[in-house]
Write a protein that binds this DNA or RNA. Structure first.
Length: 270
DNA sequence: GTGAATGTTCATTC
DNA sequence: GGAATGAACATTCA
């Protein structure tokens, strides 16, 4: 599920329900999702503390902790979430109303309810850093965030690359936040073939690409996911022999950059 | 049984 | 060194 819009939705869930509330306990149902940490360390860092304002960069969610009654200090720990392909955050109301889901791996318990890290495939998970200065090394490998990047910095991120367009846009070190569905959607709208080289884009191509990226991200963030609208490519990508929702030409699919890729041969010529 | 699934990382090869 | 490819991770579903 998670691309940038999904993670932004999880950030809002955390901000709305968990921020400012005291963490009473942490239950680790499956330690397999803890990366570079362990249940006692997570418990020690979170119990009795509260989440401060959560931040997002690409598909990474950072939830700094602070001690109730005190300001955030640089030595406070931060919980870092990555949701892989199947993860998410779920807020339940009252504990007794909501039985545990099979895929609830880590549960943060509050007086008002529970914040649950739910994940089927466990491709990624939860990290813990003990101070602010440990965050930078984790995030240093990420390019600018796809939602907040300026047009100038977007051009800058692509400058000098000689790569296929789709793998370049999905590379989190180039631009952070776009995944398989979003990139197909954006390229379809910008009328750019996924295998086109970044090096032969004109200024007008890059401008269309940036505008359509903003457009797709805005609508997706509003929905908290990439919508499957009938007028979007994404609404049809799972149908064999589906027509292009814009021109009716049968969509084509193959693998680009190791990922299933759907495009319209008429709207997105070579 | 096989392949694919909205992700990332590592090794290998060009 | 950069870019492309394939495998690995874990799990379910068609």
């Amino acid at each position: 599920m998670p691309e940038l819009p999904d993670v932004e939705g999880f950030r809002r869930i955390l901000a709305e329900h968990a921020t400012g509330r005291r963490i009473q306990a942490v239950t680790v149902e499956d330690p397999g999702v803890l990366r570079d940490t362990n249940p006692p360390a997570l418990d020690g860092a979170t119990r009795g503390r509260m989440f401060a304002h959560p931040d997002r960069r690409g598909k990474w969610l950072m939830a700094p902790l602070r001690t109730p009654g005190q300001r955030h200090r640089s030595r406070d720990p931060t919980v870092i979430f990555h949701f892989g392909m199947t993860g998410g955050l779920v807020w339940t109301g009252r504990i007794h109303d909501e039985p545990r889901h099979r895929d609830d791996r880590v549960v943060f318990c509050f007086a008002e309810g529970e914040l649950r890290y739910r994940d089927l495939r466990k491709l990624h998970g939860i990290r813990l850093v003990q101070a602010d200065d440990a965050l930078a090394p984790l995030l240093s490998r990420l390019g600018p965030d796809a939602w907040t990047v300026t047009a100038e910095d977007f051009d800058q991120a692509l400058a000098g690359l000689r790569r296929q367009l789709k793998p370049a846009l999905m590379d989190q070190a180039v631009l952070a936040g776009l995944g398989n569905l979003l990139v197909d959607e954006i390229l379809w709208r910008a009328r750019l073939q996924p295998r086109r080289s970044t090096s032969d884009l004109t200024g007008a191509d890059r401008h269309r690409l940036y505008r359509q990226m903003r457009n797709v991200l805005r609508q997706s963030i509003d929905r908290g996911r990439v919508p499957g609208y009938a007028r979007w490519l994404t609404g049809w990508r799972d149908d064999e022999d589906a027509p292009c929702p814009r021109c009716g030409t049968p969509l084509r699919r193959s693998r680009v950059g190791g990922r299933t890729t759907v495009w319209c041969p008429h709207c997105q010529p070579e």
